[in-house]
């Protein structure tokens, strides 16, 4: 449900419109690369439709998918922190529709609006936290041979 979570739901009154005013609607066909590891992180997206796979290139292997980002979720947070380079690559696993936001414009908007700035920072932090928890939990390999947790 888009109602719960989601960047726009996290914003204070009236800021959704302000943010959307500087957004650009974009589409990525199946299989297209949205960004690459090491590239300049100068924007972010809110996915509307489709799923984006975040991957890491391993020489001699197909790119390993670390995580996926689905509808309503934030794609990209490296724009917020120096050195503003992507840590992972992103690829559309289906037809992807998204709102794209330029980092400079968002920063300019936030500089004039501390409340928006704070809400945005909170939302990005929450997203990072969720992904950290996801990665940590998956490190346990709970569904693996020794990690079973229910009736045999």
């Amino acid at each position: 449900m888009m109602g719960h979570g989601g960047l726009f739901a996290a914003l204070p009154e009236g800021r959704r419109e302000a943010l959307l005013a500087i957004a650009r609607e974009v589409k990525y066909p199946v299989g297209s690369r949205i960004f690459e590891e090491g590239g300049r992180a100068d924007r972010f997206w809110v996915v509307n439709t489709g799923t984006v796979a975040l991957d890491l290139h391993v020489p001699g292997r197909r790119a390993a998918v670390i995580d996926t980002v689905g509808p309503g979720e934030l794609l990209g947070w490296s724009w917020l922190f120096p050195p503003h380079h992507w840590h992972l690559g992103a690829q559309a696993t289906g037809e992807v529709g998204a709102w794209e936001f330029g980092a400079d414009s968002v920063r300019a908007l936030c500089a004039r609006d501390p409340e928006l700035d704070h809400a945005l920072l909170m939302y990005v932090s929450e997203t990072i936290g969720k992904r950290l928890r996801s990665a940590r939990t998956r490190l346990l390999d709970l569904y693996g041979p020794a990690g079973s947790g229910q009736l045999r």
Partner: peptide, 24 residues
């Protein structure tokens, strides 16, 4: 959703809770 995707998995990777945003 799966913890680890093999080659050619077109679906989601991540925790099952991440699917709640799409559930109705």
């Amino acid at each position: 959703t799966v913890d680890r995707a093999g080659a050619g998995w077109p679906g989601r990777v991540g925790l099952v809770t991440a699917l709640l945003d799409q559930a109705r």
